[in-house]
Design a protein around this nucleic acid. Sequence first.
DNA 1: TGACCGTCTTTACATATGTAAAGGAAAAAG
DNA 2: CTTTTTCCTTTACATATGTAAAGACGGTCA
Lengths: 191, 191
Amino acid sequence: MKGFREYVKKFGNIKEDTFTELKTNYTQIHLSKKELFSSEGEYARKVGFLEKGIIRAFIRNSEGKEYTKQFFFAPSIIGAYSSLLTNQPNKIIQETLTNCTIWIADYSKIEALYARHHEMERVGRKIAEYYYLEKERNLVEMALFDADKRYSLLKERFPTIESQVQQYHIASYLGISPTQLSRIRKKMQIS
Amino acid sequence: MKGFREYVKKFGNIKEDTFTELKTNYTQIHLSKKELFSSEGEYARKVGFLEKGIIRAFIRNSEGKEYTKQFFFAPSIIGAYSSLLTNQPNKIIQETLTNCTIWIADYSKIEALYARHHEMERVGRKIAEYYYLEKERNLVEMALFDADKRYSLLKERFPTIESQVQQYHIASYLGISPTQLSRIRKKMQIS
DNA sequence: TGACCGTCTTTACATATGTAAAGGAAAAAG
DNA sequence: CTTTTTCCTTTACATATGTAAAGACGGTCA
C-alpha cells in the first residue's frame, strides 16, 4: 500500500496500532484501462485507495450522454461516496483511464473502525470535509469563471492531464463541447 | 433554541448531557432583512443555527456581479463553512432575505466538543457528509438538467420560495438571467 | 507498406440565451 | 391616498456555443 500512510496523515494523525488495524481491511486489485470501479445502479459497498493510475467519474443522462465530473490521479481515495453514505443506487460511474492499482475495503468495516476509535472518526470527518470543500470549489469555479479560465485552472492542478486524458473527457469536465475546447486551445496557442 | 434538538438528531443521537453542554455555547441574535451573516474577506469564527427566516449565500466575481449559490430556510445550520474549515478568508457571503432569528456559537468551542466527545465528532462527520451530498447533488443537477427542470426541482424542494424570494435571486441560483427565467415561467404557465 | 481506427480540428449553420432598454405592475414609503 | 422605488416582463438584437459532418493526423495492426 505504497503511499497510503502519508495519504491518511493528511487527514490527521492516528496511532500506529490503529493504522495497522485499518490496513488489514484492504486487499489489492488491478484494473486495466477502461474497466469500471463503480457502476450505475449498484449499491456501493467498497471504498478504494488508488495507488497508481487515473480514474474518471461521470454521470449519464436519460439519453445516455456522459458528463465527466471528476478526475482521480493517484494517490487518491475513490468510491461511490454518495451511494455509500445514502444506501441509494449509485449514479456516479467510475472508469479507469489507465491501468490501475487499487486497494479496496468494505465500507462497513471502515465504519466499524470509526465507531471503535475516536481518532478514526475524526479522520472520517476530515475526509468528508475535504470532499465537501472540493465540491464547493467546483461549484464556485463553475459560477465564477468561463471555460477558458477553468481550463487553465485544471491544467495548473493536473499539469500532466493533457497528455494523459482525452480532450473530449476534459471538454466534458469543463462543461463544453469538444469543438469549443478545440477553439479555446487554438485561441490560447496564438496568444 | 426552538427546533435545535430535533435538527441535531437528524445527524445522530447524542446524550442529553452532551446536548446540554452543546447548547451552552449558543447565544441568540436577530438580524433584519438584508443584513449580512457572513461577509467577504473575513476569517469566519462562528457557526449559526437559523431558527427562523431565510438566508441566501452568494459569491461575487471580480466585476462585482453576484451569483447566488444556496438558499437556507429555517431550520438550518448556517455559516461560512469553508472559511471555518480552511482558515482562509471567506468568499461566500450570507445575507438575510427576511428578518431572522439565529443562534451563534464559536466554532472553536464546537471543535473542542468534537475532541471531548466521540459522539459529537460523529455528528460533525455526519454534518460534513450531509453537506457534501448536497453539493454533489447540485453539481449533478447542473450537469444533467436544463434550467427548466432545475426550476421545477427547486420549487418542489422549497414550495414557498416563489412568494418569498425575488425572481432575480432564483434566476441567479439557476445559473440563468432574469430574462430567461421569465421566459421559462411564461412557457410553463401556458403548458 | 497500406488500411483502419480513434482522436482532434475545422467549417458551416442553427439557435438558445445574454444584454440593454423600456414599459408596467406591485410594493414600499411618505 | 399619492408618490417613489423596486421588481418583473417583454422586446430587439448580438453572439457564443452546440450540432453535424468532413478532414487531418498519428498510431496500430495485418
